[in-house]
């Protein structure tokens, strides 16, 4: 099952590249939202490979808290843009 992590890492590079090359803040937010989801799924895959469920718990927490913080950041950006 180790074959999964290689393509996952390669696909993860696309949004990371997008965060560098785009100047628009909302395109960057999209890329970071994608990076956060993908990394938390990769953490889940690694926890299955190692059969260590504390790592899996961290992956699920990152999934929830990561997306929640991106939502707050989007709200802050919207308010700042309105000033």
């Amino acid at each position: 099952m180790n074959w999964i992590l290689g393509p996952m890492l390669l696909i993860l590079l696309i949004p990371i590249y997008e965060t560098f090359q785009d100047k628009d803040i909302w395109q960057k937010m999209l890329a970071f939202a994608s990076v956060s989801t993908k990394t938390s799924i990769m953490i889940l895959v690694i926890s299955v490979l190692r059969d260590d469920w504390m790592i899996g718990l961290v992956g699920v927490l990152i999934l929830s808290v990561g997306n929640a913080s991106l939502m707050l950041l989007a709200q802050v950006l919207k308010r700042v843009n309105e000033l």
Binding site: W26, M29, L30, A33, T37, V60, L63, S64, N67, A68, L70, M71, A74, Q75, L77, K78
Partner: peptide, 16 residues
């Protein structure tokens, strides 16, 4: 959490 959070995040990003 995937189904809920990703969907809501997509909505919030679209709205903002």
């Amino acid at each position: 959490s995937l189904a809920i959070w990703n969907t809501i995040l997509g909505y919030v990003l679209a709205y903002c």
